[in-house]
Amino acid sequence: MKRSIAVFLQGLVIENPLAIIMIGLCSALAVTTSVANGIGMSLAMTFVIVASELIISAFRKLIPESVRIPIFIIIIAAFTTMVDLVMKAYFPDLSKAMGVFIPLIVVNCIIMGRVEAFASKEPVPHAVLDALGMGLGYTWVLVGMSVVRELLGNGTILGIQVLPESYQPILFFVLPPGGFLVFALFISLNLFLKKKWLESPLGCPDPEGGN
């Protein structure tokens, strides 16, 4: 039981996919220009990683070592296409705003990495918890970044004017260089949280038992 909690918490801070492992950054920097996009992307990505880790972990004994990568891609691509279709049907506006980044979840290294490194070796409950942890870790960084960028770069949150009209938006934050700066700040924030976390009684040892 203790191990499953540790697996889940791992993705949040200690092994945050964006701020520590630093994979899947391209889409993270590209979509965080507005909060709605950040939330949409995180939800889509979390769904795909949970579903893919679940299926791959369930079938892990039937997947031959030598063709595992094509099989992983087939499964991930199938779930991504489902998300894309469902979003087009029920959330057309969001789907329009996200544009090409939903189909690009297929090549998101976070999913590929977790599936290869974790789900293909672990039982289903742990794989799902790992996916949820990673998804949430991705979500908080993404939503946090998009709040900072939309607020400073546009003066709004979720399209609602928050700062006074007289505020001159700092366009820099919506542009790619601003994305890198905000991302760097989140890396430092996460490192700070990681340090605090490991010092606190919550700080649990690495579930793999190594490192």
């Binding site: 079938f59 039937l62 997947i63 031959p64 063709v67 094509p70 099989i71 087939i74 499964i75 691509a77 199938a78």
Partner: peptide
């Protein structure tokens, strides 16, 4: 055959 089975499942 295994690859084809996974692909058809996904399809």
């Amino acid at each position: 055959i295994i690859l084809a089975l996974f692909a058809s499942g996904a399809c």
